[in-house]
Simulated scan of single mutants.
Amino acid sequence: MKIKNLFFLAFLLVGLAVNAQVRASVSSKTYDLETVKFTVDGFVFTLNADGSIADFNAPDLNGKLEYYDDQVFDKVKYGKLKSIGNVKIDYWEDSTFTKEKAGKLKRLGNISVDYWEDSAFTEEKAGKVKKIGNLAIDYWPNDIIDNSKMGKLKTIGSIVIDYGAKDVIDQSKYKKLVKFGPVSLDYYTDSFIDENRNGQLKSINGNSEKISVSVL
């Protein structure tokens, strides 16, 4: 019994470690955030910078693939994956109240997925992922002075994301990722002696096994 408990504890600790891993990728041309990978209940989700789900996978996701095949009753689901093995997949229906969500992933196994609705206060978020399981996701609102961040990822759970703002004197960080949780990115600001380097990524600090940023 003790050995079984030990194995269960080891499995639980591994699961917690995997769930804690978050991997962000940045464009080597624009230095803007491109994708973020994170794990929710054993599934690895890839979230695009525009708030859409690029893909999902799991190490033990095996089995026969079934598809929605009724053109009349399935409509927005038609041709999409219905299940992989024992994991069922569902999508949002099209209605007056779900027009921003129609056809998008609604449920993956026991994981529910929700999206921001369109309103006067959420216009820049409309249709973007709002929640995956218990993980909340938010985006930068409009700013009268500088709206360059508008609609960009702002938070994923407790991870705060920030970008370079407008600066009359220094444009080296403008619209570029400067903060992803504990990870900070700095850029060259020399526009006189070595102007070719101005705006290029200078350093990344704060990467760890838990949260990291890479340039692709």
Rank of each mutant, 00 (worst) to 15 (best):
T189P: 06
K131M: 14
L153C: 01
K175A: 00
R197H: 11
V87G: 05
D118R: 14
F11S: 12
L12F: 12
V178E: 01
D50F: 02
K131R: 10
E66M: 10
V213T: 06
D90E: 08
F43Q: 07
K149D: 00
I145C: 07
G85F: 04
V168I: 13
K152W: 02
A136Y: 06
S52W: 07
D170L: 04
Q21W: 07
S184C: 00
N5G: 12
K202E: 06
D114V: 09
V113W: 04
T98A: 06
G85Q: 08
Y115F: 14
T189G: 07
G103V: 06
E123S: 15
A20S: 11
N62A: 12
I144W: 06
N19M: 09
D50A: 11
W92A: 02
P182S: 08
L9W: 12
S83K: 11
M150E: 15
T98C: 04
Y163T: 00
A58G: 14
V168E: 13
E209N: 14
L185K: 09
F180L: 05
G85Y: 07
K77H: 07
K210F: 04
G63D: 03
D162F: 01
A49Y: 14
T122A: 10
I159W: 04
L47I: 13
G181Y: 14
G127W: 09
E34R: 15
